[in-house]
């Protein structure tokens, strides 16, 4: 008997993504939706999307959604979760959103161990506004605001979010994954699922940092961007589980 082994998750609407060709935001959206389906929580989930390329995520996730101001998704999610503690709440944020303008919000949400899940998309650049330097831009990486490459004397060092947040007692689950090939896509999905399970079992704040590409602003074809991610980002941003509650191990 022929059986569908791969199909569009129900937690995605049928609206086509607006992302550039080969942008891995799309893969990450799909993984989140697959996890929502597998956990059977679509009817009980509230998502918060950021300002950044994923600002329209409210059109794509087939669940109740908020659009938050730039960087403040964790504060919005806090307001939601404190109001409706039995709902599943997640934020979806880029690196400019989470690791620059919204650093205070994510740190304190983690420190308070707010029981929501954050999907943090690290593409080492500001996508939406035209490829400016992000807090996660690598040393030497060229962007529209570091035309000669990021210079540590002038622009300082990249921020390692997973490492930083895992030092907080309130952070229950912190992992860094990548989506540059099918094996890693599978691993990324497992981490995202755990991050939702940690929330649902009431264990506290959970964050998955997902290394992602921006072919458009990196100025390379999509497959080359995946290779660039693997060769340049992973050495600086090591993959792995940085923190995990004992029960889930």
């Amino acid at each position: 008997m022929m059986k569908k082994v791969f199909t569009r998750p129900k937690a995605l609407t049928d609206k086509p993504f607006h992302y550039c060709p080969g942008c891995t935001h799309g893969i990450i959206h799909r993984l989140v939706a697959e996890v929502i389906d597998e956990l059977g929580v679509a009817d009980n989930t509230v998502g918060v999307c950021p300002v950044g390329c994923s600002v329209f995520a409210y059109n794509y996730f087939n669940v109740d959604m908020f659009q938050a101001s730039h960087g403040r998704a964790p504060a919005v999610a806090t307001g939601i979760k404190r109001s409706l503690p039995d709902r599943v709440v997640f934020t979806y944020q880029g690196d400019g959103d989470l690791a620059s303008i919204g650093t205070a919000e994510i740190i304190h949400a983690a420190a308070r161990s707010e029981k929501f899940t954050t999907i943090f998309v690290n593409n080492a650049v500001y996508g939406m506004t035209g490829g400016q330097m992000a807090p996660t831009t690598l040393l030497g990486q060229k962007t529209t605001t570091t035309p000669k490459g990021r210079d540590k004397e002038q622009a300082g060092f990249p921020v390692k979010v997973a490492e930083m947040l895992s030092t907080l007692d309130g952070a229950a689950y912190v992992a860094r994954v990548s989506v540059h090939n099918p094996t890693h896509v599978n691993k990324a999905k497992k981490a995202i699922k755990k991050a939702f399970e940690v929330q649902i079992s009431g264990q506290g704040f959970a964050l998955v940092e997902v290394l992602s590409t921006c072919p458009t602003n990196w100025g390379m074809p999509p497959n080359e961007a995946l290779k660039w991610l693997e060769e340049n980002m992973i050495p600086y941003y090591p993959l792995g589980i940085y923190k995990e509650p004992a029960e889930v191990k």
Binding site: K4, R8, L12, T24, H25, G26, I27, N181
Partner: peptide
């Protein structure tokens, strides 16, 4: 699994 636009069914 790699398709960012969920184009493919298997």
């Amino acid at each position: 699994r790699m398709c960012p636009d969920v184009v493919i069914e298997v």
